[in-house]
Amino acid sequence: MSILQEIKNAVRSRSIHVAYVDVGSCNGCDIEVLACLAPRYDIEQYGIYVHNNPREADVLLVIGSVTPQWVDKLRDIWEKIPEPKAAVAIGNCPISGCVYARRGTLTTPPVENYIPIAAQVPGCPPRPTEILSAILSVAPLIYKDYEEKHR
């Protein structure tokens, strides 16, 4: 492995731009992602920066079970994210639909049906600590030797 590649790996895993998209959640996971910004958890000390702009993001946090409005829009957003990219499902909703996965619901979970999911953070809602450690654990795996893997 070249030194350049090593530098790239190191830099990439310490500089993660995050976009999050709420495809029909109860807001619970949403504000727990926000709480990660709080100085208590301080997501930025790990080099994670929360944008809401898919075009400059590396990691997409998907929150919520998929509502009919989002079925096509979610794919569009995913395609707008430049490579290398990864999606992390936050909370139960994108994994199983949580309590909404019942008869009569309008949602169509799981999110895996629409975009590939790299990691899942179960919980309703997950604690900010769990979200943080999930993002931190998924980042190096994806960005390590990205060029080698996708040559």
Binding site: P68, W70, Y100, G104, T105
Partner: peptide, 19 residues
């Protein structure tokens, strides 16, 4: 509006309080 419609009231019907 309309991006978050999950149909919660529809799901609620016919369920006991603990759900």
């Amino acid at each position: 509006l309309g991006y978050m419609k999950k149909g919660i009231e529809r799901i609620m019907r016919g369920r006991p309080w603990q759900e």
